[in-house]
């Protein structure tokens, strides 16, 4: 195995593009090293992006926030402006693994691992986050929900890597929240999860919303019907019931060691409702 730690995005793209055999990007490594260790993959090339300065920063920009692909999740929690603007996303990032894992793992890696249960992804999708992708043919920007296309598979082409995650500017009277169900209190992979991001008008009526569900389909789902269920409401019980029903209706889960179809479908509704309530409160709704 060859290990490279380039200092520029360009150099990283070049290494990946020229690689013969299997090449992997190393950000936090909390998935990559496990897969290497268990023999699931045997990389010929690993490109460590943590020495690329532009990928190692969280920046407040004119249009929101930019989060470098190599920024560990723990650093997100230390950025006060980010926590204030996107508390749900930061909470999601700081639910991945343990404190130790959060010291290394990144939301970009979480996204590129393309697991349906990735904690930060529903929160990013709900937030309307976009991924900045650099490749041999230049830069492209796509919504986060278009990165994973199947379990373990992304839409990234050979030689491409994600450089940044862009978060939109936070509108007033907005809030987001992410909840996951796990059997223990920590250290588990989400059995089912929900991210909700919404904006209210002056009267507390939901004017826009995005609802994303994790671990209920091959990829994280952005559920328009669930968003529609609460738009125009003050999140009254009837709207919440509709939200729950829409969330359950969108589920296409599997039975596996972590949960059953029945359980995931039911609990998706529970979490969507609970997350919506938290987001609503954060947006200043009463």
């Amino acid at each position: 195995m060859q290990y490279e730690a380039p200092e520029t995005t360009k150099a990283a793209v070049s290494l990946l593009a020229k690689a013969k055999g299997s090449a992997y990007v190393l950000a936090g490594g909390s998935d990559l090293l496990v897969r290497m260790r268990t023999g699931f993959i045997e990389p010929d090339l690993v490109v460590d992006i943590k020495r690329i300065k532009s990928m190692s920063e969280v920046k407040k920009t004119a249009t929101g926030f930019s989060i470098g692909a190599a920024v560990p999740c723990a650093a997100l929690g230390e950025n006060k402006a980010l926590v204030k603007a996107w508390p749900g996303l930061v909470e999601a990032a700081n639910l991945i693994g343990s404190k130790q894992v959060q010291g290394r793992c990144t939301i970009t890696g979480n996204m590129c691992n393309a697991g349906p249960a990735a904690d930060s992804v529903p929160a990013m999708v709900a937030a309307g986050a976009r991924a900045v992708i650099q490749g041999p043919k230049g830069k492209r920007v796509i919504p986060v929900e278009q990165v994973a296309i199947a379990p373990g598979k992304t839409s990234l082409k050979r030689g491409e890597l994600v450089e940044l995650i862009l978060l939109p500017e936070r509108k007033p009277k907005s809030g987001d929240a992410y909840l996951r169900f796990i059997p223990r209190s920590e250290m588990d992979i989400a059995v089912v999860s929900a991210g909700v991001n919404l904006t209210l008008d002056a009267k507390g009526v939901v004017t826009s919303a995005r609802v994303a569900l994790g671990a209920v389909a091959p990829t994280v789902l952005l559920v328009d019907a669930a968003a529609k269920a609460i738009i125009g409401s003050k999140l009254d019980d009837a709207a919440l019931e509709k939200l729950g029903a829409a969330a359950s209706a969108a589920c296409r889960p599997i039975d596996d060691k972590r949960g059953t179809i029945e359980f995931r479908t039911k609990v998706a509704a529970v979490l969507a409702k609970r997350a919506a309530k938290i987001a609503y409160k954060r947006a200043g709704g009463k």
Partner: peptide, 20 residues
Amino acid sequence: SVEVDGRLICSCLMLGVEAE
């Protein structure tokens, strides 16, 4: 568990070469 540049991590999830 070890600390790297003041950050808590699992040393099983970091490559030795990254320690440079």
